[in-house]
Nucleic acid binder design. Structure first.
Lengths: 204, 204
DNA sequence: GTCTATATGGCGATAGAC
DNA sequence: GTCTATCGCCATATAGAC
């Protein structure tokens, strides 16, 4: 996206906010125009239709979420530090972009037909492949137990992302106050790291 | 809901299906009427408005998901078996009611204001409290490590539910085929059970 | 209870002036 | 590029006959 604050950019930012908040059908073009401070007609001038605007928003967010995983993971960091950094990176990102994450998940499920279109222009998935490879190596070295790297990654992401997406459900089921839930989130990185390391590290 | 197949029930079932598939805004009253095989007017006769129908659907599904957790967990089952059954029960339920689960999660996040209304008429959360208590006891006995029962339960549910909700995302990021993903789901209960037991069991 | 017909309003998209 | 005005359509909800 452009660095300066053009009309196009104002529209796009407003669209991201509103789509994330209310989904595709729940977001009206008029609302986007209002939030961007321009007319509905200008909106159609920049993005021909609601569908096109929507697709660009999903594409942009998905790309952002994927590339943001990166982190600074070097070859020589030990497995404990690697996992700790991975968990920390994931959790902070998901916490920061909570609504965006939920939105992308939901829309990818709903509009699976558009998925082929959307993944065009996203090619920075190499990072994950790198991590999978590294985990495979550790497994061969015998520092971690025999677990498929994919299963491990999914476990980690799951434990990071779930409490953020399920907040109302968790509070309801566990009879938890806002305060208690906040504490739960604050200790989360540590809990997940400890849990994961205990589960996979080979001890003598 | 009634046991016989009245018009009201046909409408309600159609509404559940369509709301789960397309969300609130994406579901049209005409579509519900068509699917139920009655006219749009009859729909309003039974449920005064779309909002009322929607709220009842969410309430019904939430109640169903919560009460279905139960399982047959007795006092004298050992911790290994307890967790194995818990994981198995959760996973099977979430897999069976995948769309419903996603829908309830999404709608509870979106319509948080309605939550107060919705939780009226749901009082079977005692099951979870029972499990939390049992885990607390095991912790005091020293069979499992010092982890807050809430954190443990959340980890388990997270690992069960995440791959089901994030299927398109996972396939995309991990470059996984339908077949590979299916295998991943099939081994999931075992993976989560092993992972969890390794993480929390105290070994001598 | 169930229907057809209709009221009422909102939406996405476009036309056309400036 | 940006606006106002408007077209054409479809949604929810109701009226009223049967």
């Amino acid at each position: 996206m452009d660095a300066f604050s053009s009309s196009e950019e104002k529209i796009f930012k407003a669209a991201i906010d509103l789509f994330c908040e209310n989904g595709f059908d729940g977001t009206k073009m008029q609302a986007i125009a209002d939030k961007a401070g321009i007319s509905k007609a200008s909106l159609h001038y920049y993005f021909r239709s609601k569908d096109r605007l929507f697709k660009k928003v999903v594409q942009n967010l998905l790309s952002m979420l994927i590339t943001n995983v990166t982190g600074e993971i070097k070859e020589d960091t030990c497995i404990e530090e690697l996992l700790q950094k991975l968990i920390s990176g994931y959790f902070d990102m998901f916490r920061k972009f909570r609504k965006q994450t939920f939105f992308v998940f939901a829309e990818l499920v709903k509009h699976q037909k558009l998925l082929a279109d959307i993944i065009q222009g996203i090619d920075k998935i190499a990072v994950i492949q790198e991590i999978l490879l590294r985990l495979q190596k550790e497994r061969e070295k015998g520092t971690i137990i025999a677990i498929a790297p994919e299963d491990l990654i999914i476990n980690i992401i799951a434990m990071c992302i779930y409490p953020l997406m399920a907040e109302p459900m968790i509070k309801l089921i566990m009879s938890m106050s806002d305060n208690e839930f906040e504490q739960l989130l604050n200790r989360r990185k540590q809990v997940v790291t400890d849990f994961t390391l205990r589960a996979i590290l080979v001890r003598s």
